[in-house]
């Protein structure tokens, strides 16, 4: 049985473009002066403020360096020179690669564990009550202590930094996922029960979409904690990586070197934030855009 289209339209709560279904991701850019204006407005609104902040901070630093005139506060030119030296040597990429590898492996393992444990804790009150104190304990133990213990117990093996990153990110992720799971509408879970959706379908079609905002918030926090502990682990127990290099420059009293490595560090974080997190967030939230079209 098919009812007429006019019948359906009458039911529609809001006006629609005739015959054009809402397209989730198909709102392609159109050309024209209006579009150029809106793009310009977007650039002014989204790009200018952070760039302005960076310029202000750099100018303030330069002023401070000029006023203090001490090697402890090097001028921007010195830091840039040091950064240029780092870029020219292949050592920079090797060290960055090593640190990224440690953070990456630890983060992925921590993420996978967290999704499983977080959903289980969110769904099972007894398990949540059982594991919550452990999570809180892991959250309050400083990264420095975790790094020291991992160095003492696991020495220079890859287990050390990876485990340390897992311990740093998992509690943050898990507690966020638990909150996310508890926010899931029980009625949707009931629907999934009635229609006997498989665990795989539930994970990818129900849990992950609902948890996405919680996961992104937790992943941001988790990755910053991962960086903090990895640097400490590399300072205390390893002979490579960004943390080790920072320590080396510190030992040589080379403040410009410390700052050059810090800039490297900050650039990587920026790339992760804008290149990875925001892209993934945009992709995962496409349905909201489609819904609003």
């Amino acid at each position: 049985m098919t009812i007429s289209q006019s019948d359906v339209r009458q039911e529609s709560g809001r006006p629609r473009l005739s015959g054009v279904p809402a397209d989730p991701g198909g709102a392609g850019p159109s050309s024209g002066p209006l579009d150029r204006d809106s793009r310009l407005r977007w650039v002014l609104g989204a790009v200018v403020p952070p760039v302005l902040l960076v310029i202000i901070l750099l100018l303030a630093w330069q002023l401070m360096a000029a006023k203090m005139s001490t090697p402890l506060v090097p001028r921007l030119g010195e830091i840039a020179g040091q950064f240029g030296d780092l870029l020219r040597t292949s050592g920079l990429w090797t060290q960055v690669g090593l640190t990224l590898e440690r953070v990456g492996i630890g983060f992925v393992i921590g993420f996978l564990i967290s999704v499983v444990v977080g959903i289980a804790m969110g769904r099972n009150t007894l398990l949540r009550r059982f594991l919550e104190p452990l999570m809180l304990l892991l959250l309050v133990i400083p990264g420095l202590v975790k790094a020291l213990l991992c160095v003492i117990w696991f020495g220079v093996s890859l287990i050390n930094p990876v485990l340390c990153v897992v311990l740093a990110v998992a509690p943050v992720l898990i507690m966020n996922i638990v909150q996310g799971v508890r926010s899931v509408d029980d009625q949707l879970v009931e629907m999934a029960d009635v229609y006997r959706l498989s665990p795989r379908v539930r994970l990818f079609r129900l849990w992950l979409p609902v948890l996405a905002p919680y996961l992104f918030a937790a992943a941001r926090l988790g990755i910053s904690r991962a960086w903090q502990v990895i640097v400490l682990v590399e300072i205390f127990g390893l002979a490579s990586g960004i943390g080790y290099q920072l320590n080396l420059e510190f030992s040589n009293n080379n403040v410009a070197g410390v700052l050059a490595w810090t800039i490297t560090f900050a650039l990587i974080m920026t790339i992760i934030e804008y290149g990875v997190f925001q892209t993934l967030e945009r992709l995962s939230g496409r349905w909201r855009k489609g819904a609003g079209a």
């Binding site: 709560g13 809402a22 397209d23």
Partner: peptide, 21 residues
């Protein structure tokens, strides 16, 4: 979907549909 008269809304997200749809 065709039987309930929503064939052309197959790609629409629920939030753009009316309560009846």
């Amino acid at each position: 979907l065709e039987a309930v008269g929503l064939a052309e809304y197959a790609r629409s997200y629920p939030s753009v549909l009316s309560g009846g749809q």
